[in-house]
């Protein structure tokens, strides 16, 4: 019978903490990648070319319908074996591409929902004031489209943080990977995996609170109600 041992806990803790930097770095890099790549999907879909739009919609559906773990394995293990175009990627890069692309398809949907909140009248006013395409997006549309999506984007950050341990399966030495190796070496999984769970909790929970605060702050910037009712009027 293997009981809880504080000696093991104290021994394992600093070793597992060492992996935290990797876990956090991977989360942030994946997230930024997904945020940027989300725009890519969004703007590609706006190109008025039906075949392209169809292709992109189908690709996004495909990415969302397959497990991120399968995508991760494909990029790390199978991609180097693809004839002509394939090449080997290191563990970290594979994880960023795999998780980043997977989440970018969800992020793109969040952006789209935000843009739909901006009423038709806003686009027309931007045109009547002769805004260039770029300024119209940066000054009029996105400043209204993004704040309502902050809570959703924040939730995806937390979800991503919790999905990042998938990268341990291809050998990225985050906290789960280290805890797992520690368990295998010392024949005790209870303490190291408990430490991993605690670390996730103490990082996820305050993040949720911060996102909540941010949401309130964003909403204060202007009356959200007005934008919402106006968009309803425009779609009616």
């Amino acid at each position: 019978m293997n009981n809880w041992s504080w000696d093991v806990f104290v021994d394992a803790f600093p070793k597992i903490i060492d992996g935290l930097a990797i876990t956090l770095a991977l989360t942030i890099v994946c997230y930024v990648f997904a945020l940027v790549f989300g725009f890519f999907w969004l703007f590609i879909k706006m190109i008025p070319l039906n075949s392209l739009r169809w292709l992109v919609t189908w690709m996004m559906e495909f990415i969302r319908s397959t497990p991120p773990l399968v995508q991760l394995f494909f990029i790390y293990f199978a991609w180097p074996m693809v004839p002509v175009v394939g090449f080997a990627l290191d563990e970290f890069t594979s994880a960023v591409l795999g998780l980043g692309i997977h989440f970018s398809t969800y992020i793109a949907e969040v952006y789209r929902s935000g843009i739909e909140v901006v009423g038709k009248g806003q686009w027309e006013a931007a045109k009547a004031l002769n805004f260039s395409k770029r300024r119209k997006w940066t000054k009029i549309i996105l400043p209204q489209a993004i704040p309502p999506t902050i809570p959703m984007l924040g939730n995806y950050l937390i979800i991503m943080f919790k999905e990042v341990p998938l990268a341990s399966t291809i050998g990225v030495a985050g906290i789960l990977h280290i805890a797992n190796s520690y368990g295998a070496q010392n024949w005790t999984y209870l303490e190291p995996l408990t430490i991993v769970a605690i670390l996730f909790l103490i990082l996820s929970y305050p993040s949720a609170i911060i996102i909540n605060r941010l949401e309130k702050k964003m909403n204060r910037r202007f009356d959200k109600k007005e934008t919402l009712t106006r968009s309803k009027g425009a779609t009616a």
Partner: peptide, 11 residues
């Protein structure tokens, strides 16, 4: 142009 529904920028 001035619109029926104002279309001011709410932000």
């Amino acid at each position: 142009m001035v619109f029926q529904h104002f279309n001011l920028f709410p932000h």
